[in-house]
């Protein structure tokens, strides 16, 4: 059995072109260019308030965008909203399972609204729950779930419609390290089995380094650097070496001199990162998310 849906390699999963989005005077996304390749795990990285969520919400059709700015597998997010939505599995930043229903009912709702026919509904829901290892807890109320379990439940909700693109907004925020790696392992397992494209935002650089094929570093609504994390780190190392040679200072050598992704981030975002990386409301909303999860 062929597990890979024939991927059209020429096709981009997501492409944003000169995308802007403002909330009043706040320019949340500022002429963003972004391209996610079919089949990859793409990480959108950035500090609080960078505009990651806003960019994601533009792609999901939640926020209105002009035509020809955002395409999902070739479908325009402004003109073909329903087509785009059918291709998407979306897990928003805040925990979004309905606490007053069981895990299974939560997933079944999404099977229904994605038109899964009745005869295969139960089986499909069971498989989605099985994939995220929630079979045993499926008939418990979602309000009894831990933060990590709710995240996995949301993953099941997103997977039940067999999306081609999984969009995860900070899937691991507020989770303990074990729950974090468990969520990532499930994302990975699913990606491997289905070949789906994953667009994920995070501000954990270590996660991005470990799990993403390519990353885009976002700051103040724009992507400042794009590539694999090895590429980005290598580029910065080479540039630092060159600068050091030109300045006549000793050339840093060996592994210890290889910058981390965080160094790359500080480099591209410039000095503004520490002082202006997110205003008070961003921090507050991040805290709220964290406490909801806690």
């Amino acid at each position: 059995m062929n597990l890979q849906p024939a991927p059209d390699s020429a096709e981009e999963a997501v492409s944003c072109h000169a995308l802007d989005y403002s909330f009043g005077d706040t320019k949340a996304v500022d002429s963003l260019d972004l391209s996610v390749r079919t089949g990859e795990i793409f990480g959108l990285l950035g500090p609080n308030g960078a505009g990651k969520t806003t960019a994601i919400r533009c792609i999901t059709t939640l926020l209105p965008v002009p035509t020809d700015r955002v395409k999902v597998f070739g479908h325009d997010a402004a003109k073909e909203q329903m087509a785009v939505r059918r291709l998407l599995g979306y897990v928003p930043q805040q925990l979004s399972a309905d606490a007053a229903m069981t895990g299974r009912e939560n997933v079944t709702l999404f099977a229904r609204v994605f038109d899964v026919p009745r005869r295969e509904r139960a089986a499909r829901v069971a498989q989605a729950l099985d994939v995220v290892d929630l079979t045993g807890a499926a008939d418990r109320m979602a309000k009894t779930y831990s933060g990590g379990m709710i995240r996995r439940l949301e993953l099941a909700q997103a997977l039940v419609s067999a999306p081609r693109l999984l969009m995860l907004d900070e899937p691991t925020i507020g989770l303990d390290p074990i729950a974090r790696s468990s969520v990532w392992e499930h994302i990975n397992a699913v990606r491997q089995a289905t070949g789906m494209t994953v667009l994920v935002t995070t501000h954990y650089m270590d996660e991005a380094e470990q799990y993403c094929d390519r990353v885009g570093l976002m700051h103040r609504g724009r992507i400042h650097a794009l590539g694999t994390s090895d590429e980005l780190r290598g580029q910065l190392r080479d540039r630092r070496r060159k600068e050091a040679r030109e300045a006549g200072t000793p050339v840093p050598a060996g592994d210890t001199a290889t910058p981390t992704l965080e160094d790359v981030f500080r480099d591209v975002a410039g000095q503004g990162l520490d002082e202006e990386g997110g205003d008070y409301s961003d921090v507050r909303s991040a805290r709220r998310t964290a406490s909801r999860l806690g």
């Binding site: 597990l3 849906p5 026919p117 499909r124 498989q127 099985d130 039940v160 419609s161 067999a162 699913v190």
Partner: peptide, 11 residues
């Protein structure tokens, strides 16, 4: 385990 999750439902 994944069989059904590979095929999108007919709209």
């Amino acid at each position: 385990r994944f069989e059904l999750l590979l095929v999108p439902p007919a709209p």
